[in-house]
Simulated assay, not measured.
Amino acid sequence: MKTGKMTNCLLLVFLIVTDSTKADFTLRGNEQLTFNWQTINGYLYNTSRVFIVPNGHISYLRCYNYSTANMSGGIAVRINSYNYSTVNISSGSVSILAADDSSTINLSSGTVARIDTFGYSTTNISGGNISGNLYLNDYSNMNFFGGTFNGLLSNFYDFSTTTFHGKNFNCGSGLTLNGNRILGTGILSGQWLNGTTWSVNIMYNDPTATILIPEPATLLLFGFGAVMLRKKRL
């Protein structure tokens, strides 16, 4: 008697839609979608993924569970990440970007007008432009490695933590440095590690919030390592 083995396989669905106007979409399981039309709502669940490309225009995208949204162009009025979802933005324009729970946002390029963070979420900014307001709440974390700020007004609430990974920091009027922690409100300026200058207006800094800059020893070690690497190459 022959016996057969049945293997459960996940069916990977990859959709490409080119019509200019389509209905809302909902992705579940391991579904994938390349989005390049105009719609109002999008919902991601489980481990689904959406790729927002040029010509894509969505009013409200919600990401849940372990889903991923990748934006390489187009326009989004609002993107919200929940649970353990991830949002990666490498181009395009977002009016409101919000992270909650333990979700992660990575911004490497593009333009964002406003960022709101909640829960234990993590936001990593290595590039792009933030043109409006920044609000950190709860126990959320934000790491700045690069980017530009056009009139950015920053507000740090609750037990949030923000770290500026740069050098040559300057505390404007109203700001003081306690170890590697920034206290008070005012203009904080400096350079990213590639030498690009930046400045940010800290409008509200809750006593329980934490704003950090690298300790001088960290910067010295970084510089020393770079010198040793150059000598080794020579």
Rank of each mutant, 00 (worst) to 15 (best):
V94C: 05
V94I: 15
S95Y: 12
I96Q: 04
L97V: 01
D100V: 06
D100W: 12
S102W: 12
S103M: 05
N106L: 10
L107E: 08
G110Y: 04
G110D: 05
T111R: 07
R114D: 14
I115S: 00
Y120G: 11
T122G: 09
T122L: 15
S126E: 13
G127V: 06
G127D: 09
G132N: 07
N133V: 12
L136C: 10
L136F: 12
L136R: 02
N137M: 14
N137H: 15
D138T: 05
N141T: 15
M142V: 08
M142H: 03
N143R: 12
N143M: 06
F145M: 04
F145T: 03
F149S: 04
N150D: 13
N150E: 08
G151Y: 10
L152R: 00
D158I: 01
S160D: 02
T163Y: 13
G166I: 00
G166R: 00
T176L: 09
L177D: 00
G179D: 14
N180F: 06
R181S: 15
I182C: 03
L183E: 08
G184I: 11
W192L: 04
W192D: 03
N194V: 11
N194T: 14
T196S: 11
T197M: 05
T197F: 07
W198C: 02
N201Y: 03
M203R: 08
Y204H: 14
N205E: 06
D206A: 00
T208W: 09
A209M: 04
I211F: 04
L212T: 10
P214D: 04
P216S: 01
A217S: 15
